[in-house]
Design a protein around this nucleic acid. Structure first.
Lengths: 210, 210
DNA sequence: TAGATTGTTAATCGATTAACAATC
DNA sequence: TAGATTGTTAATCGATTAACAATC
């Protein structure tokens, strides 16, 4: 097994989404061109990406869709289940917890935490909200490796550290705070403002502020 | 002016966040090493990135923080205001509308849309929720160029097309649907599940499913 | 057989990193 | 002067794309 570039792994979920969409349409076979049309990725790049993991295609025909989906899931690790914890039971945390797609990809929302006594004990996304003070204990018990930060920016650093203490290895950060954590922890920043900022540069109508 | 690689533009918002954090701490000057420590980007890369836009640094000293922040804002286009529309007034839409950081970066939440008659007319994030049927009219009036999809996956494609019809050029898509739009439209996918999927591959504990 | 599409090679392109002279 | 840090060059590395023989 050779080293697989990070870029390849980043594109696999995109391919998976596209394949699931095509599968739902009843397709049995897909070509790299089909996937390319749907995802915007160059077909040659898709073929090159897939070869890292073996040869599943048939010349002249394409790829068997079910087999390809299974294979990508195995590569990504979404063929078995992963527990996640959501910190923050407000609008954002609720929206994430109620997302309908988790189970389809093997994720289980195992815990939701908040500091607000009025929220603790209520049910969000089918899970009872727990006090953040119990984070370490519960996250340990439930073998949670993935944490979602859906809280105000101020508490991000401290809460991220608590998650790491509890054994979490992947953090999805919805705040604009840049959290400082050990290098082994994967932090994915998903703040809408930061995500939109870089797109502004490509606005065609760069209206001058007269 | 030479062509600036996309990667550079993508990193600028990250630098900006880091700089704002350091500015809040009272710093007047920063080195590329400071920014690198905070953002995880190689200092040499930061210096190379900045040179695309001119030379603002002083050898032996570093960069004047206020000037650098102003410059990055100008490059990105966040030095003047941009109206955004949020489609979906549920938990996710509300969370996004209520985000405290919009105004700090020149964004104005100008409209929130929903299809649910019970939501239309209520106030979310300081904005009255409008019927999606009025999307085209209102988005045109308000000169909205940025739309956020905070709705169930099923409606994503159709709603995205409505946004484009109304003149929107940038779409932040929180659904897992891959939307098909003209190439000139910038779509940024921010579905939490898709974002988490690729991180799984790097989980240290790749527990086999015995 | 003719058309389609893979797997693979070759060519290009851009991004990353290290290193260091210039200079505050 | 000594230490720090930029701007810039050079070397490396990986990603992208086009092209095509192989083959269903």
């Amino acid at each position: 097994v050779k080293k697989v570039p990070e870029g390849v792994i980043e594109r696999l979920p995109l391919y998976l989404n596209g394949l699931l969409q095509l599968q739902a349409q009843g397709r049995k076979t897909v070509s790299s061109k089909d996937i390319g049309d749907l995802t915007g990725v160059n077909p040659a790049e898709i073929r090159r990406d897939l070869i890292h993991f073996g040869t599943f295609g048939t010349k002249g025909i394409g790829y068997p869709i079910n087999h390809l989906i299974r294979t990508i899931r195995k590569i990504l690790g979404s063929d078995h289940s992963h527990q996640i914890a959501i910190v923050g039971g407000g609008n954002l945390g609720s929206a994430i917890a109620n997302h309908s797609g988790w189970s389809r990809h093997g994720f289980v929302v195992a815990a939701v935490f908040d500091t607000d006594p009025r929220k603790i004990g209520t049910v969000v996304g089918g899970v009872r909200v727990s006090d953040v003070a119990l984070l370490r204990e519960i996250a340990g018990q439930e073998e949670i490796k993935i944490g979602v930060l859906a809280i105000p920016a101020e508490g991000a650093q401290l809460t991220a550290e608590m998650l790491v203490d509890a054994g979490v290895e992947i953090i999805l950060n919805y705040t604009s705070t840049i959290v400082q954590l050990p290098a082994r922890i994967q932090v994915h920043n998903s703040d809408p403002i930061t995500e939109l900022l870089y797109t502004l540069h490509y606005l065609t109508t760069t209206e001058p502020i007269a």
